[in-house]
Design a protein around this nucleic acid. Structure first.
Lengths: 182, 182
DNA sequence: TATCTCATGTAAGTGGTTACATGATTGC
DNA sequence: GCAATCATGTAACCACTTACATGAGATA
């Protein structure tokens, strides 16, 4: 799939270690892509083997050594080609909806509890995104700013809008379940 | 993951053949889960092997024979247990956002074209959902209707809200790209 | 003494995609 | 004759998860 290109994108922006990339997945890139450290290290190994990236070992006295990866010319070409191509929509997979279809089997109460948990998780997530928006992006990027800044803001916006849409559905769903209980 | 349980859910509602299940994925269940026929048949084989489902071959004179699957007692217990348990949020993966981060590499024009394609695909999708909503669910399910009907409607609503949120973001993103071009 | 952060990996198993394969019937 | 629908599968490969593993320095 495209984890390969996510990793390439990050290395293209800034030469860095596998550990740094993992941190990006936990933080900034995390609101539109997730990956575990095992995936990242395996991807780095395979990208390195196909010569899309190169690395140099950087020794450190106080911390373990790290490998600093940078993109190669072929790598940048490949990234360009991929990013220019058409985008296929990613497959939909919503576990909660499957469970909802089993309403008669599990009972309404169980579903309500599950939805409540989703509400609080989504609200927390949204709160994080909104605080980033007001801390980092107020005012939002202006025409004079770099394309990069605009794009990062747009990815954050995607996260925010997604959460809000999710919450709206969760509200509809909770109301429906309530009416079914009486 | 939970493809296993999606298949179980469908068989639990109504004993049916693999082919029927594949059709469900292309149609109704399609707006919150996707699966290819290969996946479905493999899942049926493995569910059958673990005795969560049973099948009988139904011979047909005009069409090829089919295997009609039904859920077993252990299968229903397993489904109940899974559906009652906590739901983890599914990992986020949005390819287009990764491409957006490469704005400086590929250029704004390319991204605009990609977004336009996403807009038209999403609009088509939304139109389909909305027509189902007005054809099948007007008026929407009332308190007296079956839980199943309410749940099916909610899954449709999830699809609609998702499309609308996506379109809202696409609009924001397109505007941003326009301002960057000048 | 125990846990956290930094930094890297291997191994086994499951889930998912792509391509290949068959064979009968119906409709244009 | 060609494509579509019905109905089932296999094989190879790629993506992803879970668990296991190491080892040093920092902090409580």
């Amino acid at each position: 799939m495209s984890l390969k290109y996510v990793v390439l994108t990050l290395i293209n922006k800034q030469p860095q270690s596998g550990y740094d990339i993992v941190k990006s997945f936990d933080q900034s890139v995390g609101y539109f892509w997730s990956a575990s450290h095992q995936q990242v290290y395996r991807e780095l190994a395979s990208l390195s083997e196909s010569d899309w990236i190169k690395f140099k070992v950087q020794t450190q006295s106080d911390k373990p050594d790290k490998k600093i990866y940078r993109i190669s010319t072929v790598g940048r070409t490949a990234l360009h080609q991929w990013a220019s191509g058409p985008t296929r929509e990613s497959p939909v997979r919503e576990t909660q909806l499957v469970k909802m279809l089993n309403a008669e089997l599990v009972g309404i109460d169980v579903l309500q509890t599950q939805l409540e948990q989703q509400v609080s998780r989504t609200q927390q997530q949204l709160a994080v995104y909104l605080s980033i928006e007001s801390d980092v992006y107020s005012p939002p990027p202006q025409p004079g700013d770099t394309a990069d800044q605009h794009m990062l803001y747009l990815t954050l916006r995607r996260g925010i809008l997604g959460c809000q849409s999710q919450l709206q559905w969760l509200d509809e769903a909770s109301r429906t379940l309530s009416t079914l209980k009486t």
